[in-house]
């Protein structure tokens, strides 16, 4: 089974995302901010990270940059999932190495299609 790390400071969003992911046959792990997520990518080795942008402690963009500096056996795919819905944010994320981008709100089909795009669907 594929594993997804869900990173979001909102408990509700994590719950919704985890639920959808489970219906898509993913196992899930959760983190509340970027720094927890950095630990979790190492301990959990997820295949993909669903990443919020705005979070306390360490935001999504800082996480993405830090992730690039880690030496990992297998780099997870990164899908931003955020209310930052401007095209300049999307461009910034893709330029920084994100694999995909979801604008909140999202539904099951959106998440499923983005997972397929990063070849995990």
């Amino acid at each position: 089974m594929k594993k997804c790390l869900v990173v979001d400071d909102s408990k509700v969003i994590r719950k919704v995302a985890c639920h959808i992911l489970e219906t898509l046959d993913f196992t899930v792990a959760e983190a509340e901010d970027g720094s927890q997520a950095l630990e979790a990518v190492q301990s959990e080795s997820p295949d993909v990270v669903l990443l919020d942008w705005n979070m306390p402690v360490m935001d999504g963009m800082q996480f993405l940059k830090a992730l690039g500096e880690l030496t990992l056996e297998k780099r997870p795919k990164v899908i931003f999932c955020t209310t930052e819905n401007g095209v300049e944010h999307i461009r910034e994320a893709i330029d920084a190495g994100a694999d995909e981008y979801i604008m909140k709100p999202f539904d099951r089909e959106t998440l499923q299609s983005k997972l397929q795009i990063v070849e995990l669907g």
Binding site: G86, I90, I94, Y101, I102, M103, D107, T110, S113, K114
Partner: peptide, 19 residues
């Protein structure tokens, strides 16, 4: 926004659409 991100890779959104 809902329709555009259903199935469309972010790169294509940036390349072929204007927000």
């Amino acid at each position: 926004q809902f329709e555009i991100q259903r199935g469309l890779p972010a790169k294509h959104m940036l390349q072929w659409f204007e927000q």
